[in-house]
Simulated scan of single mutants.
Amino acid sequence: MNIETSLDVLRYAAFTPVPSLGAGPRSGNPAGVVLDASALDEAAMQAVAAEVGYSETAFVTARDDAQRRFRLRYFSPLAEVPFCGHVTIATAVALAERIGPGELLFDTPAGQIPVSTTTGADGALRATLTSVPTRTRPALPEELDGALAALGWSSGDLDPGLPPHVAFGGVQHLVLATADRARLADLDYDFDALAELMRRHDWTTLQLVWRESADRFHARDPFPVGGVVEDPATGAAAAAFGGYLRALGLVTRPTAITIRQGEDMGRPSELLVDIDPADPRVRVTGRAHPIAEAR
């Protein structure tokens, strides 16, 4: 039975770049949004997320429009996750279209996530989420060895200036930086082996990055634990990565960086990340717009 027939499941593309940078019908990360999930139990939400088939679907399980406060749960096709950035951006834009731009507060399993929604000069809505406090630690040798083996990478592929870490911005991500853009482009990993490793260490994605410059990075995010080969834009990982850069001492004053993601899979996405050395949280900004897709 198609559960969606009795629900209003919205579809948005999140972290779409501006038109001049490659926005199009296949840009951004598709997200499912259910703005009234108050009658759904966990099993029903999981079933809907599996039917939608996107990397994440958000469910608003309680809402107070007057206070602009909402409770969210997030489901991949395979499991619930505590936090997801791209579908948070999509949900915020969907709400702003209905109740107007402004400040929102999302209560999530990872904690409270303030989101600011605004209309840009181009007329497009965008949202800025503020993460929970970030943290990071060096990856353990066995963690790194397992990841490199599943990816088919070697230690010589890594950028010594960006050491492997496990970074947190609501959920955990293994950060691996390559010194070579071609290495990032040539991603062909062992899906089952990486999924097993990620489940063992409680990682949501791998944040694979290449540093183009001090304020511009390219990323790819395998997500096999969610049943998805690769995520085109990962806001939670972007927040974690911002905290990682701050912890390494690579950010010493308020700094904005850009992460380009999804390019190698044909879904170019752009994430704007604001990092303040005095604030353990990180702000991630992106555009989102509705997409039409047959159910």
Rank of each mutant, 00 (worst) to 15 (best):
L158S: 01
A177W: 02
V251T: 10
S154W: 00
V60E: 00
D188F: 01
R295V: 13
A149I: 05
L72A: 11
D221I: 03
G123R: 10
V48C: 04
T118P: 00
G152Q: 07
V251Y: 03
V18D: 14
A239H: 03
Q261S: 12
W210L: 01
L162W: 09
A219T: 08
G266E: 09
V34E: 01
V284W: 06
A149T: 15
A66K: 12
V284L: 12
A177E: 02
L10H: 05
V34N: 02
G249F: 07
H218A: 13
R199L: 15
V18M: 12
R63A: 13
A58G: 09
P109K: 10
F191K: 09
D36A: 06
E97G: 12
D190F: 00
A66P: 01
R287G: 07
A179W: 03
D107T: 13
R183Q: 13
A185G: 11
T258W: 02
G32D: 05
R283P: 11
L208P: 07
D159G: 04
A92K: 01
A62N: 12
D215Q: 13
A233L: 06
G249L: 05
P109N: 11
N29Q: 04
Y244E: 08
E143L: 08
R246I: 03
T258R: 12
L7R: 00
S154F: 00
A256L: 13
S269P: 13
V228R: 01
Q207S: 14
Q67Y: 04
G242C: 07
A127H: 06
